[in-house]
Amino acid sequence: MNIFRLAGDMTHLASVLVLLLKIHTIKSCAGVSLKTQELYALVFATRYLDIFTDFISVYNTVMKLIFLGSSFSIVWYIRRHKIVRRSYDKEQDTFRHYFLVLPCLLLALLIHEKFTVKELLWTFSIYLEAVAILPQLVLLQRTRNIDNLTGQYVFLLGAYRSLYILNWIYRYFTERHFVHWITWIAGLVQTLLYADFFYYYFESWKNNVKLQLPA
């Protein structure tokens, strides 16, 4: 465990907890894309199957449980909670996320490390995580203004993946056998997707103006 990875996990944890806190406290999910939250729940459900078969560490298991619990809670709040669901912007959150799931499934069947069910689902989750933020970014573009908690959520998610890239570089140089091309390329694509959001996020933060994303 290196500092980049720990910082990455903590940032990732913060992103989901910030979002869950927002939704729970102000009983609103305005600006939040349910599609992205459902995709993340699917990412965790297909990636953390090994929680029952391989024990890596207490930290690993606890974090997986927290991510599973928080992502499914967020989906439940937006779908089922009688107050929160009213603030869900169904008309604007129209990204057809099945168009993301199917290509990731096919790609996992084509490019993977081992042809086992667990490994295929794990690879699927890696590809899906890379594109899961798209419905949220599209929603932010449409709603123009974004309130700072949603902005923070996307920012923290981008920061977590950037820290993971530093972690992979660190591990590549310290553990020779550590080579995971699939994870590295998908992680890089994911971080690049955030790049333009980052640009506008820093611009607005620097000029101390409300974040405006260009249409």
Binding site: D50, I56, N60, M63, K64, K114, W122, Y164, H180, T183
Partner: peptide
């Protein structure tokens, strides 16, 4: 012998 790489990251 290189053991199959388990995915130890989140």
């Amino acid at each position: 012998k290189q053991q199959p790489q388990i995915h130890d990251e989140l």
